[in-house]
Simulated assay, not measured.
Amino acid sequence: MTTCSAATSGSSGGSATPGSTSSSAATSSRSRSRTCPSCCTRPTRRRTRSRRSTSSCAGSATRTSAAPATRSTSTSPRCCSSSTTTFELLAADAGGVPRAHAVCRVSFEDQLHLVDVGHGAPFYHPIPLDSLPLQIPHGDVSYSLDRHASHREAVEVVTLRKSTRVHSYVAKPPPVAPDGFGAAIERTHAPDAPLMRRLKIIRFFASRVLEIDNNRLVTTHHNITTVTPIRDIDELEAIVHEALQLPRMPVREAVDVLRARGVDIFDGATA
């Protein structure tokens, strides 16, 4: 799983450009196009791929999941692939900003799950909503998931760094069609947006997580986080291509775009 901000996003191997999207979730075997009899306005295409890790870019996102993944596309806010599984796209408000994030709510065998593949968080599996409240530790950071008082079906996800609240979002019904996020996507990808003014790449492996945050390499292994400074562009490119195993990620291009926006990631002020 990888998250990149600024000027990158990519297809296989992790190459990146602004404005791409994310993929998700969880089934096995290959299925053909089919039409949902009750809740889809047109056929839904499901494509299954097995991937070893996940990549996404902040500000844009490309993601591969650690388990076999299914992609579902539809113009309807709710789409079902079978009589026992339904997928809903829910909007999430963050920091008072509506539709700042999007999550999937999946009903499988009469149980609801939260599936969030664009948060750059260690959510390796769909999260059963009947398991809430839930704490997920991740080195210096932990994630708290619980119901929210704003709606009986609302879910709040809080990011804590050393017990200090640093970010949160609240996802709740009703389902939203993909084109309902148009304004949020434009806002997120504006040149002065926070995620367009820093370099962030996160990749999740089976036993560790590597994160590039401007000129720092953040490693979380066995729930212990270490931070290593990155001296220059050559070292940064080598780490991304070799340690993160993303040889096609256009690191130099991303750094150049940030520099053109007045952001030097190797300046101590931006570290």
Rank of each mutant, 00 (worst) to 15 (best):
G14A: 12
V141N: 10
L258Y: 01
H119K: 12
A6R: 01
V103S: 02
K200N: 13
L246E: 02
C40V: 11
S74Q: 03
E88V: 07
E237V: 13
A254P: 00
M249T: 06
M196S: 12
R105S: 01
D264F: 00
E88C: 07
A121P: 01
V257Y: 00
P18M: 13
V115T: 15
V240C: 05
E235V: 09
A69N: 14
C80E: 07
P194N: 02
C104W: 00
S53F: 01
D146T: 03
E109N: 12
S207I: 14
L90Q: 00
V157C: 07
A190P: 06
T220M: 02
L199V: 08
Q111A: 15
H119W: 11
F181V: 02
V240S: 10
S15M: 07
A149C: 10
V166G: 14
T70C: 13
R216F: 14
P194S: 03
A183N: 08
L217A: 11
P98E: 11
S107Y: 14
A269E: 15
M196N: 15
Y143C: 04
P178N: 14
P98F: 10
V141R: 08
N214D: 13
A7E: 01
A91E: 10
L236C: 03
R216P: 12
A94F: 11
Q135P: 01
L129M: 15
V157H: 08
G268W: 01
I224C: 09
S33C: 12
R105I: 03
D256T: 05
V255A: 00
I233D: 00
A25P: 04
I224E: 07
A66T: 09
G10R: 04
E253K: 10
N223I: 10
I265Q: 00
V106A: 03
D116C: 09
P250H: 10
R105V: 06
D213W: 12
I201A: 00
R32I: 01
